[in-house]
Each structure stands twice: as structure tokens, then as C-alpha cells.
Design a binder for these strands. Structure first.
Lengths: 178, 178
DNA sequence: GCCTTTGAGGAACGGTCGTTCTTGACCGAT
DNA sequence: ATCGGTCAAGAACGACCGTTCCTCAAAGGC
């Protein structure tokens, strides 16, 4: 019954994740979403309830379809060096982390539900870095996750030249000795 | 000549830095600034020209009065461990980095002038971490700056428990061996 | 005294925000 | 063929956005 949808919900969420990964939550307007997502205003509110609902859907999508594969690559890597390389050295330069990064830096402090999602994702990253062997409490895995985020920030801000790659390699070299 | 000002410009910039450090650029409104800064709308535009002008002034103030002292503490520390502790372990938990952090993550990609300021500040942090001895190209200093930002993100997002302190110590321990 | 200059006070601007309403097209079921 | 229900299309909502304007108060120079 009813008229069939003229848009692909998964595709809409995917594109929304792309927009929210590039600009702050308040920096992305409904008009812009409607324009770039291929979904009508009315359908957007019918499907996601509100701008925040769409944002949460986009964040969840990103965690599942972008961050999780990245975590798998880290986990399957031989060590921190390969892990960081696998996470940041891909074709996208680590852009898969952008929505998580912005959510953690900007949205989590103001939205408890975002904070919960962020907490889970960062914990998963920690355990991926700590994978070979049970983690000793407060190991360097948390710091590696932090370094991952920080290095991605530098690339995003246009701050990082070739030094970033070198820094990553140098850090990884140090960590590999242990 | 003319009527004397009823507000302290430095104080206004300081408070603006506090507001912009807690929320995204678009998340802070002029009404909110006028309310919390103790300056009239008219005087704000007369003094800073625009919201962006006030933001840039606040960012510059933060870099000079918050980040620079932090850099000095890092530089005077005995090594990366003490440096990270000095930067993040203070009474504010590293809040001095917040405006720089948000500027790098959210504003720099959209505002070249912000990107320039961010680039300079991060380079200064790099050189502080690399202080003891001339830096070999692509040393781990850049990664330490990245880790500093990433660890602060975790604290801000409500994600970090006691693990963060432990992670910082563990990373620092590794780095101190070299 | 007055005049000029600058800041304070607050209303008001056009535009855009997130959200909702109204209308009509489309589809499966009856 | 008609009906019930879902979606598309777009106008419209009140609220708020960043910014400007107008008017009055307060100081220094003549």
C-alpha cells in the first residue's frame, strides 16, 4: 500500500555522513541536506524525525561502514606501525575517521547520545591497537587511538605536509620495538 | 575625546575565547556573545568588525596566552613524558588547547586565515616536543603533538576515564627510552 | 558655555534556520 | 473504479541568525 519511495534511505544516510564529516553540525543546514541528499524535506522528517535524528543515523552508519572496517585493518596489522599506516595511509587518507572525529570534538560534549557512540567507537579502536595479547591496564593503545585522531586532524586542517607521514612512521618505529 | 569605553577589550576577547572553546563557531551566536561578554552589540561590531573578526581575535588571544605558556612548559620538561604531563595534567586538564583543537578540526578547513594560525601553533608544539637536540626530519615530535590533541579530544568528549592518564604515561614511558 | 567625537542602548533589518502544513500524485488493495 | 495510505512538491511558519540604523549619554577641545 502507499506510494513507493523515490529515494534510497541507505544512500541518503551515506551522503549525509559525507556532509557532516566535512562541516560542523550547525554548519550543515537542512536546505543543504535536502539539496544534496536527493530526498524531499517532508520525507526527511518523516524518516528521521529531525536534523539530529538524521545526524545520529549518519554517525551510526559511519561507525558501522567506515570505522569498523578500519578497525579490522588495524587489528589484522602486524603492529602499531602497520595499524596506523593501514588506518591513515589508504586512498582517502583516513577520511573514514572524519565524522567520528568531528563528533568527538564538537558534538559529544553537547549530546550525550553522541558521546555514547563516540565512547564505544574509541574503545573499539583501543582494543584493536591492543590486539596482540591481553591489554595491560592503561597500555599505550589509548594513546595510539589519540595519535590516530590527532594525525587526522592535522591532515584535515591543511597543516600536515610530508612531515605527518614521517611522524607516523617515526612513532610507529618506536612503538614496534616493544 | 569621546565617551570612554565601558568594557575591557582584553576581557571581552578572553571570554569570547572561552565560549568558542566550548562550542563550534556556528554554535555560538551573537546574542550569546553579547550576553556573556559584557559588551554591547554595537561596540562589538565597532571593535571587531564581525563575528569572524572576534573569533580570530579570540583564537589569537588563546594562542598567545594559553597555548604559548603550555608550549613553554613542554619545552622546559625533561622529555615527552613530562611534556605531556605538563600539558594535559594541569588543573584545567589541558583546556588551554580547546580553542586550538576546535579551530583545527572544524574551522581551519573552511577558513584559510584560521588554517594559517593553526599551522603555526602546531609547528610550535612540534618544535617544543623536539626541543632537546635539533629535530631529524619527520621525527616523532609531530606524532606527539597529534597525540596531545587526540588525548584532549578524549577528555572533552567525556570518553576518557582513568585510562587516558594511564595511556599517556605508557606512551611517555616508551618514548622516554629513546 | 557649545561642538565634536565616541560609546551605549535598543529597535529593526533582510535572510536563513529547523520544522510543519497543504495539496496533489501515485500505488496496492478492495 | 474507487478507496486508503504513503510520498512528493513546495509554500509557509515562527524563531533566530548576523548585521545595521537611529537616538541619546558622556567625555575632551574650543
Amino acid at each position: 500500500m502507499g506510494r513507493p519511495r523515490g529515494f534510497d534511505e541507505a544512500e541518503v544516510v551515506r551522503r549525509a555522513a559525507g556532509l557532516f564529516a566535512g562541516r560542523s553540525y550547525d554548519g550543515v543546514s537542512i536546505d543543504e541536506l535536502v539539496t544534496h541528499l536527493g530526498v524531499h524535506r517532508n520525507s526527511l522528517y518523516k524518516t528521521f524525525g529531525s536534523k539530529r535524528g538524521l545526524y545520529l543515523a549518519a554517525l551510526r552508519w559511519s561507525l558501522e561502514h567506515e570505522v569498523t572496517p578500519l578497525i579490522e585493518r588495524i587489528r589484522e596489522a602486524g603492529g602499531p606501525a602497520e595499524g596506523l599506516d593501514g588506518a591513515l595511509g589508504g586512498a582517502d587518507g583516513g577520511a573514514a575517521l572524519d565524522l567520528l572525529l568531528l563528533a568527538a570534538a564538537e558534538r559529544a560534549p553537547a549530546d550525550p547520545e553522541v558521546a555514547t557512540l563516540v565512547t564505544g567507537a574509541l574503545a573499539a579502536l583501543d582494543s584493536a591497537f591492543a590486539a596482540p595479547g591481553p591489554t595491560e591496564g592503561g597500555g599505550p593503545a589509548g594513546a595510539l587511538t589519540a595519535a590516530l585522531l590527532g594525525l587526522r586532524i592535522r591532515v584535515r586542517s591543511g597543516t600536515a605536509g610530508a612531515e605527518t607521514t614521517g611522524s607516523r612512521a617515526a612513532l610507529a618505529r618506536l612503538l614496534d620495538r616493544h
